[in-house]
Design a protein around this nucleic acid. Structure first.
Lengths: 217, 217
DNA sequence: AAATCTGCTTGATATTTGTCAAGCGAGCTT
DNA sequence: AAGCTCGCTTGACAAATATCAAGCAGATTT
C-alpha cells in the first residue's frame, strides 16, 4: 500500500517536471539567449501544476477568474451560454497559449465565460500577483508574455477580420489553413460554434468542400 | 509676413502642448500616483505630434507599419479591401486608444490593412524602439500601456463574442450601448462594414429599431 | 444482445441577409 | 439656379444560413 502510493507520487513528480520543462522550452524558443537555471527557478516557483480532466471546468460563468493558466498539453474551450442555452465558443486553448478570462482576471469582475477541457489537459497555473512579480524579476519570462500577448492580439484581429469579410465556407477554409490542429482534435459541432454557424451548416460546407476537392483532382 | 508666420508657429506650439497634456492626463487617469514632470519629459521626447487630415492615410496595405500612434483627438479606421474592392473595417480608433497594425509593427511584415482618418485627427506618434525604451524607463507610461492592452484585449473578445452569438440587429444594439460615440460620429455605411453587414441591411435594422421604440412608448 | 447516446448527416422549409436598381434630399461646386 | 455628389432609404428578388425533424453508424451502458 505504502509502496504503491510512493510509486504514484514518483510518477506525478516526473510528470510535473516534464510540464515545467516544456514551459522552459517555450520561453527559450522566443528569445535569442537561454534562460538560466536560477532565473527559471523563479518561474517554477510562481506556477502550480494542475491537471483538468475532460469535461471538467476551469472557470464558470459568474466566478471571478483568479488564475491565468499556461496550457502545457491538451485542449480547452472558452464559451458563453445564451438565453436559449446555446453555447458560443469564443476561443480554443491549446499548447503554449494562455487560458483565462483576462477581463475578469485583471478587473476582478465576475466573468460571463465558462472554460472547460475537451480532453485531459495539463496546466501551469498562476495568480495575477505572482505574474506581476515574475514579469518584473525574469526578463526571459517577461519576453515570453509579451510574445504571447502579441500572438493573442494578432489572432483576435485575424478572427474579427474573417468574421466581417468572409462567408461561412471561407471562414472554415481559413481555419483549416490557420489551425489545422483544431479540425483534427475538436468535434465538429464545436468548430461550428467557433465559426459562428450551426452544426448543420458546417456539415454541408464540409461536404461541399470535399466534393470540390475530388472534382478538381 | 514674418509676423504672421510667427503667429502660426505659436498656435502650433500651443496645440502641441495641449496634445501632450492630454496624454499626461490619460496616463494619470490610470494610476493612483501622478507622473512627475521629469518622468513625463521622457514621454514627451519619445513622441512626435502629427495631424492627419480627413481621408488621409496613416498606413497603406503592403507597407510595414513602423509607427504606433496615440490618438489625442479625432477618428480613424483600420480596414482591408477584398478582391471585389469592398472595404471591411476591423477597428475604429478614437481618443485615448492606440492606432497601428501591431502584427506588422512587431514583426516588420507588410500589413494587409489600411488606416485613414474619418476627420482631422491629432496623433502622438512613436516607434517600436522608443516605445520599448520608454516602457523600461517610465513606470507610469508602462502602466498606461498595460491598461491600453487590456482594454484592447477586452474589446476584441467582446467583438468576437458579439459576432458569433448575436444577430445583426443585436450587434447594432450592442454597439449603440457600448460605443454610442461611434453611432454619432461615423457614417452609417462604415458602421455597417464594422458590424459585418451591408449598408442596406443596417438601414433596415435602424428603421426596425426606431419603430419598436415608438410603439413601446 | 438490447438499449442508449453521441456525433454527424440529410431533407424540407423558414428566416435572415445580400444584391441590384432606383430614388430622394442636403450640401457643394460651377 | 442648375447640376452633381454623397449618404441614406426603399423595393423586388436571390442567396446564404438557420430551424426543425428524421435517420444512421459507431461507441458505451445496461
Amino acid at each position: 500500500m505504502h509502496f504503491l502510493f510512493l510509486l504514484e507520487l514518483k510518477k506525478l513528480l516526473i510528470n510535473h517536471h516534464l510540464m515545467y520543462e516544456q514551459l522552459r522550452a517555450y520561453i527559450n524558443n522566443g528569445t535569442s539567449s537561454i534562460i538560466s537555471d536560477e532565473e527559471f527557478k523563479l518561474v517554477e516557483q510562481a506556477f502550480t501544476p494542475k491537471i483538468i480532466k475532460k469535461k471538467q471546468f476551469l472557470l464558470h460563468e459568474g466566478m471571478v477568474c483568479k488564475y491565468m493558466s499556461f496550457i502545457v498539453k491538451g485542449t480547452m474551450r472558452q464559451y458563453t451560454i445564451d438565453q436559449k442555452g446555446n453555447e458560443h465558443i469564443v476561443r480554443f486553448g491549446i499548447e503554449n497559449w494562455w487560458i483565462s478570462d483576462r477581463d475578469s482576471f485583471i478587473n476582478l469582475t465576475p466573468t460571463k465565460y465558462c472554460i472547460d477541457a475537451l480532453e485531459d489537459t495539463e496546466l501551469l497555473v498562476t495568480t495575477n500577483e505572482k505574474l506581476i512579480n515574475l514579469r518584473a524579476t525574469s526578463v526571459h519570462f517577461n519576453k515570453m508574455c509579451q510574445n504571447l500577448d502579441e500572438k493573442h492580439f494578432s489572432a483576435s484581429q485575424e478572427r474579427i477580420q474573417a468574421m466581417i469579410s468572409y462567408t461561412a465556407e471561407e471562414r472554415f477554409l481559413h481555419l483549416m489553413n490557420t489551425y489545422p490542429v483544431f479540425i483534427q482534435r475538436i468535434p465538429q459541432a464545436m468548430l461550428a460554434s467557433y465559426l459562428g454557424i450551426t452544426p448543420e451548416t458546417l456539415s454541408r460546407i464540409r461536404k461541399q468542400v470535399t466534393l470540390q476537392n475530388k472534382s478538381s483532382r
